[in-house]
Amino acid sequence: MPQKIANQFLEAAIEPARWLDVLQRVAQQTQSKHAQIIGVGPSFSFGFNWVNDMDASAHAAADRAELMAPTINFRVAAGATRPPQTISWEDDYAALRPSLADQSYLDLCSDLDIPFGCQTNLLVEDDGLIGFALLRAHRNGPTDAETRAMFARVCASAGAAVALQVALERESYKLVAGSFEAMNLACFVLDRTMSVRAISRGADALLADGTLRLADGRVAAPSLAVQRRLTAAMATIGERRAGAASVAAPTPAGVLMLKVHRLPDREWNMGFAPFAILIAKRPPAADSADAAFLRETYGLTASEAEIALLLRLGRTRAQICTARAITGETLRSHLRSLFGKLGVRRETEAIHLLHALLS
């Protein structure tokens, strides 16, 4: 059995939709109700839960973030204190139960009839752990020495498969960054904590010239006001409250639009694949040739030239403030200077002149 299951585990790492098949085989061979691969994210957040022969209603009851705390879940508590490939079993669970904060996970085990079993950690890292377990019903009874020995023999194969899939998921950060590099776009590829894991050359250039920076592994803006908006946008994406969010970041070279997009969920993702991307791009309004003409001919600053181009495009003052991430008072100050340099007194006169100059 071990060699056949070892091959099935490695096949699952390459074709993750096959995980349930190999878990089914492990459960059958160990005469258990279920075999399980579970991911626990940072701070014991819920990652994923793959269990053979578990229906949707049982998953809905089990797959809840509040049940992942080690003060609630004796299995998570056992995993949090053991190094990889160390087996915990019913004796360990019994020792932990008296210290649980409440009965919610014990009630779940009773409802799903999974009071017994054994487990090990296949991977333990700062950004989470992946556990492997047998879940046994009353009719299966507690694990015995022979069952735990059989479980131990397949743990190495399961660990190798998990390590392979995690490595493949992590390699995809570079693939995503490379794709955006081919499109000549500045791209930061983010993990589920919104930390940067790969960047394109364009993104590297923005870091090198100080337009953006990294703080604790995350993209940060030099301006405190922009940073607050960027942090809020990142939280919106990280908490899955939206699929995309944008922030305008004024820079000496003009506005830089920071657009964060959550990538599509992958059903058999262990949590180490790219979660989101941040694209940094100058808005189309900042046409370089027209802006250069206005700067050279009328002595406009980069900010004034961009505001002039936005006016020519028919943007309202409110829209310009949003695009430039500035207040109404700041915009009025720019417009006074802009009108003086163009030799006009009103906004409508400026727009007519700009159409005539740039048509």
Rank of each mutant, 00 (worst) to 15 (best):
V176L: 05
V176P: 01
R153E: 15
E171G: 11
N140G: 06
L135D: 12
S157P: 07
A163R: 06
R148L: 06
S172T: 13
L135N: 14
L168D: 05
D127A: 13
M150L: 15
E125A: 10
G128M: 07
M150W: 09
L135W: 06
K174P: 00
D127K: 09
N140V: 00
H138Y: 05
A161F: 02
A145M: 08
R139W: 10
E171Q: 14
V154I: 15
L129F: 04
K174Y: 07
I130Y: 02
A158F: 05
L168H: 00
L134D: 09
A156Y: 09
G178M: 10
P142N: 12
R170G: 08
E146A: 14
A160V: 01
L175G: 09
Y173Q: 10
R139N: 15
A149Q: 07
G141K: 08
A158H: 02
A152G: 05
S172E: 14
S157E: 13
V162E: 00
I130K: 02
A152S: 11
F151S: 11
G178V: 09
G128F: 06
E146M: 10
V162H: 00
F151K: 12
F151H: 14
G159E: 06
A160H: 09
H138G: 10
Q165V: 12
L129Y: 07
A137R: 12
V154K: 01
G159Y: 05
Q165D: 08
A163V: 03
G141E: 09
H138N: 15
H138T: 14
L168T: 05
Y173P: 00
D144R: 06
A156E: 13
A160G: 08
R139S: 15
K174C: 01
G159R: 03
P142D: 13
R136N: 12
A152D: 06
E171A: 15
A156N: 09
R136H: 11
A149P: 00
G178R: 08
L164C: 08
L129R: 14
M150N: 05
R170T: 07
S157D: 10
A149S: 08
G159C: 07
P142K: 15
V162C: 02
V166I: 12
A177G: 06
I130R: 03
E125W: 01
A152M: 07
G128W: 05
V176F: 07
H138K: 11
